[in-house]
């Protein structure tokens, strides 16, 4: 086992243990904190597999933005702890099916002889990766930006309260108007 192989196994152990802890914690806050550890390990794995730009993006987007958004929503809603094992039967069936899938996948990979050669180390510099991305994939990048815009509009639409935006309701409350009536503002 080479040095890089040992590093891979150590990172894999960290990812699997922290993810396994994340999906079994009782409190969602603990799950999110374990998941941040898992995403840091994934970023290390990306760097080991030759993607330094994506390792940085993994830390920034997944471990930073998405997990902070989860923590923010958990603190806003305060859902409280829920029992992980409400009934053993509810967990047994998915876990058994998951292990069947895992066993079949492992069997397929060990039967396939082409996967036996070891990966060589390589590193795609952010410069060459950016050139590649904007030379061959500029059109999907534009579509992804459109997707982010639609997601922004959808989140804003879902977040408004009963036909009014939150900012407007707060403004009316501050100005002494009633926030309960549904009529248009300014109608006396």
């Amino acid at each position: 086992m080479t040095l890089y192989g040992g590093i891979f196994y150590a990172i894999s152990a960290i990812i699997l243990i922290s993810t396994g802890a994340a999906i079994t914690r009782r409190s969602p806050v603990h799950s999110v904190v374990y998941l941040v550890v898992s995403f840091f390990g994934t970023a290390l794995l990306f760097y080991l597999l030759g993607a330094p730009l994506l390792a940085a993006l993994e830390v920034i987007i997944y471990a930073g933005a998405i997990m902070v958004l989860f923590l923010f929503i958990i603190m806003t809603l305060q859902p409280g702890s829920q029992p992980v094992l409400p009934a053993v039967l509810k967990w047994t069936f998915p876990i058994v099916m998951a292990f069947i899938c895992l066993g079949l996948g492992g069997l397929l990979m060990f039967v396939n002889a082409g996967m036996g050669s070891k990966l060589v180390t390589a590193m795609a510099s952010p410069l060459s990766f950016g050139h590649f991305l904007f030379e061959y994939y500029w059109y999907p990048i534009e579509i992804a930006s459109l997707l982010l815009f639609v997601g922004l509009v959808g989140a804003l639409y879902l977040g408004k309260i009963e036909g009014k935006f939150l900012v407007k309701r707060d403004y009316e409350k501050k100005m002494g108007g009633s926030s309960q009536d549904s009529g248009p503002p300014g109608k006396e």
Binding site: T2, Y4, G5, F8, Y9, S12, I15, L16, T19, G20, A22, I23, P28, L48, L49, P79, Q82, V84, P86, K90, W91, P94, I95, A98, F99, C101, L102, G105, G106, M109, F110, N112, M115, G116, S117, K118, L119, V120, T121
Partner: peptide, 29 residues
């Protein structure tokens, strides 16, 4: 030389199944 490609796929498969079990079995949204 890191590891065979099948082991990377195996790690990704185990993680995917962990996520699937979490999405199926947990009750909180």
């Amino acid at each position: 030389m890191i590891v065979p490609y099948g082991q990377v796929i195996l790690l990704a498969g185990i993680l995917f199944l962990m996520g699937a079990v979490c999405a199926v079995a947990r009750r909180s949204l």
